[in-house]
Design a protein around this nucleic acid. Sequence first.
DNA 1: GATGAAATTGAATATGATTTTCAATTTCAG
DNA 2: CTGAAATTGAAAATCATATTCAATTTCATC
Lengths: 144, 144
Amino acid sequence: MASEIEKRTLDRYLEEHNLKHTKQREAILEVFLSLKGHVTGEELYGKVREAHPQVGYTTVYRTLKLLCAAGLANESHFDGGITRYEIQHEHHDHLVCTRCGKIIEFDCEMIETAQERIAKEHGFRVLRHRHELYGHCADCREAS
Amino acid sequence: MASEIEKRTLDRYLEEHNLKHTKQREAILEVFLSLKGHVTGEELYGKVREAHPQVGYTTVYRTLKLLCAAGLANESHFDGGITRYEIQHEHHDHLVCTRCGKIIEFDCEMIETAQERIAKEHGFRVLRHRHELYGHCADCREAS
DNA sequence: GATGAAATTGAATATGATTTTCAATTTCAG
DNA sequence: CTGAAATTGAAAATCATATTCAATTTCATC
C-alpha cells in the first residue's frame, strides 16, 4: 500500500528514539502519504477517521509532529495562520491561489542562487527558506 | 510626534469609511510606528499600555486590523504560526535568525523578475508574495 | 455649545486550533 | 508470558484572537 521507504524511515526513527511502533502511527502515516497535498491537522484527522474511526484527534496531531521530527513531513504556515503539513520531498516553493486555495509548486535555480548571494552578503547561514507567491490562478482569472 | 503622513492616511481612511477618530486609535498608531519592527498583537498591547494604561487588549487587536485595512500595516506569519505586524512600506523580504530571532530585510531585483516569469508560466497573477530565509545570523554563528 | 444617532470601547466571554493531563491500554524486551 | 515504559484518547487546559454587549465617545446637525 503505502510507500515502504517511508514506513522504514519511520520505523528507524522510532527505534533510534526508543519509541514504539503502533498501528495508529502506521495508519496515520499511510493516510498522510496518500494525500500528497498540504493538509491541516483537522483535515488529516477527517481522512484518517474514514479508514480508522477509532483514532483520536490528539494522536493525529502528535503523529504529525513525530513525522516532522522523523523528517517525513514538514510544517508550513501559509497566510491565515493555519498550520499545514506537507510531505517532505525535495524543496519547492509555492504559488497560492487566494480565491480557490489551489497550491502549485515551483522551483527556480536562479532564485536559489540569488538567495545564497544575499545570505552571504549578510553573513547569514541559511538552513531553509520559504517562498510563496499569492494571487489568482489561471482558472480563477478566467472565471471572474 | 508620530509621522503626520501616517496619521493623515488613517484619518482619510476613517473618513472614507464613516469611522470615527478616537484617541485610542491615534495612540495605537503612534506606538506602532515608533516600534518599527515586527510586533505581535500582544507585544504591541504591552507597549501601548506603557503610555496609555486604559487601552484594552481588544482595541489593540481591532486597530491592528484597521491599520492593515488602511494600508498602514501588514500581517505576516513567520514560522511558529504567530501573527506579526509590520509597518507597510516598500516591499521587502526577510532573513530570519532562528537562534536570536533577529529579522533583517532585503530586496532583490533579480528575484522579483524571476517570480514574474514563473507566475506567467503558470498563468498566475501575483498580488503579493513572501520570501523568508531562515538560518543563523553572523552574530549567532560567531557565538557558537 | 447642546443633542442624539451611530460608532467605539473594553471587560468578559466565546472561539478555534493545538496541547496537556491522566487513567486505561498496548508494545516489546527479557 | 510479564512488567516496565510508551502510547492512546477523552476531556480539560492553553493560547491567540474574535465576538458580545452595555456603557461611553464622537461628530454632524441644530
